[in-house]
Nucleic acid binder design. Structure first.
Lengths: 348, 348
DNA sequence: TCTGGTATGACAACCGGTTGCCAAACTTTG
DNA sequence: CAAAGTTTGGCAACCGGTTGTCATACCAGA
């Protein structure tokens, strides 16, 4: 009769069961488990043994309620089915799990309203949030960040910690690549009007174009989906450019499909550059030249920054801004500019 | 001085704030909000007005603690980055949100241990779980289902409610398609050994093959990733078959890439059929013939079944099994069998 | 041996709701 | 008009932990 087996009731064990088993107070059990130094090592070991024996699992709800911390982090993405976010999500998930946090993933459906209401909701049930490609205004985002710890991804608002993917500089690399292939008339296929990264990229691109003395025009905006690629392709053909830099790979892949349908050869008649190097960019037809960056790592960094904000323990200042490098991955969708006499472009 | 503004403290409002504002007890507020019939309509309206004025949001942690229900549902997938799950996740997310539930998405990393520990963890923080393509044994799954409401996807265990995707019948359609194209020697590229759907599909396929008098051999197992496609392609070529039915599109796409590298033409030298019709299947090179099914709908159905289980209110018996239809989508990766004299296959 | 300091563990309040029970108030009925 | 029934709302316990406060016990130093 060494152990006073509490009849193994169906209900999962609580600290009170452990306390009863060890003959100590529940608070002592709580301390033994969360503030080990605060308790005699022998008592602690007894408690730990009892906890193991009962297969004790702390109730996160109760812990959250009393301590104020939920152990959960919200991750908001505009569209779960966009492959770009897969790697990001995987990165956040890995890093969160490693730190013992739970990930609350929400698809905000590209809607600022859903995004705002989700944040309000999460304010109680999460310790912080990672917001990818927010559709909110700067002010709204700043206000939300004041209410709960937040890290944005691909959204630069002063005062809000952010992980930025350096697509503007990659865009310049893409331009150089196209220029070196002889392209003179180039289009930027813009993303959603509310996308800040599209705007930033266009700014960088038009400046770089000016320096290099080539003409870059902006087409769009287009929704970041493959379906939008058809309209983008038609617009590009109509505008008489010989190369396009697309907002993202989804649009670029959609363009490839449309151009193929129309009998316009890529890259002979038209070169296409995508962005993000998503799943599929390497096996579409032709394989897509695109701007790649370590997205999974971006997710991990975002979480690290958030957790540093949540647990401002030792260590120096919290980074409030992190820029992920980007590079151009050249594949089959870009090639030499067609010679002026070349047939095929529907322009006059 | 109509309202006694409680100085708008920083802390978010609780039912006690509302109670004070209305001059009633906290319990009355609780009832007014959750059991409206239990409270006088005038009182209720006053409370509702006060709640709106204070912008009250109930604390889900506290609610969960006292009521025992968390309002959250766990969704377990083996690999978030597998595009197959995107649509599933989106389906569950939509249906859950519509019902006012929160989705807890977890990537179990194709590991039965992670899966089991996640379930244990979720037992406290979720009301139920949806488990896609479980890697657990039947017994373990059954035991877990006894402890918390569960619906599986693509996993058939007696006693556990499930949404099944009818790939076995689609596999027969695929076989018919290949047979009608003249293929006689066909390979099934198997998925992970622990995948029940791979096993079920193989069973259906070998039976159908017997009926039709064609030879189908099994190759594998292979991990469900594009990288595995190379080995699968090599094995298929070596085995001398003229057509392959792959466990899923990831493997199939990987095979397409490898065959291209090796100069083996698809579909002239080898036909390939995938499964799932994932993102990318339509734009790979050549576009993939594949078995398609309404995955998003599968996610919705799974959630509906789970919620019916959680709230066994009115309405007839809870469905415990739902089969999603599947059909073959023919694209460019399948074609007539090569004539016996045709060159190209590295077999003797 | 007495005093001050530290280690240890118990008590109880608290987090923000839910819910069983009961009493007051109101309504209906004989 | 009184008795019985029905609303309505308050009290308090409870969910499962956390944490501030305090008493006891143990230790070393004087």
């Amino acid at each position: 009769m060494a152990t006073t087996q509490p009849a193994a009731v169906d209900r999962p064990p609580t600290i009170h069961d452990i306390a009863a088993l060890c003959g100590v107070a529940a608070s002592t059990v709580s301390r033994a488990l969360s503030t080990p130094d605060r308790v005699n090592i022998r008592t602690r070991q007894r408690i730990e043994a009892a906890a193991a024996q009962l297969n004790y699992i702390p109730n996160s709800q109760a812990k959250a309620l009393s301590s104020g911390r939920t152990g959960a982090v919200g991750v908001l993405v505009p569209d779960i089915t966009n492959p770009f976010y897969f790697d990001l999500i995987r990165g956040t998930q890995l890093q969160l799990k490693a730190a013992g946090y739970t990930q609350l993933l929400v698809d905000t459906e590209e809607s600022d309203e859903v995004e705002a209401s989700t944040m309000e909701q999460l304010r109680k049930s999460a310790d912080g949030i990672v917001v990818a490609a927010s559709r909110l205004s700067d002010d709204a985002l700043l206000a939300a960040a004041a209410k709960m710890p937040m890290v944005t991804v691909n959204r630069d608002v002063p005062g809000v910690p952010a992980v930025l993917i350096d697509t503007p500089s990659a865009t310049s690399q893409a331009l150089d690549h196209l220029v070196s292939l002889g392209h003179k008339r180039i289009a930027y296929i813009a993303g959603p009007a509310t996308s800040q990264s599209s705007t930033r990229r266009w700014t960088a691109l038009s400046e770089a174009a000016k320096e290099r003395g080539v003409e870059v025009r902006r087409l769009g905006p287009f929704a970041p989906k493959t379906q939008s690629g058809a309209a983008a392709a038609d617009a590009a053909v109509h505008s008489g450019v010989t190369a396009c830099i697309a907002f993202n790979d989804l649009i670029a892949i959609g363009m490839l499909q449309r151009l193929r349908e129309r009998g316009i050869r890529v890259p002979q008649d038209m070169s296409i550059v995508g962005c993000d190097d998503i799943f599929g960019a390497d096996f579409c037809n032709p394989p897509l030249t695109t701007m790649a960056s370590p997205i999974e790592q971006a997710g991990r960094v975002a979480v690290s920054m958030l957790l540093a904000q949540l647990n401002p323990l030792a260590g120096g200042g919290t980074r409030s801004r992190s820029v992920m490098p980007t590079h151009l991955t050249v594949r089959g969708s870009t090639g030499p500019a067609p010679t002026p006499a070349a047939p095929g472009l529907g322009t006059q």
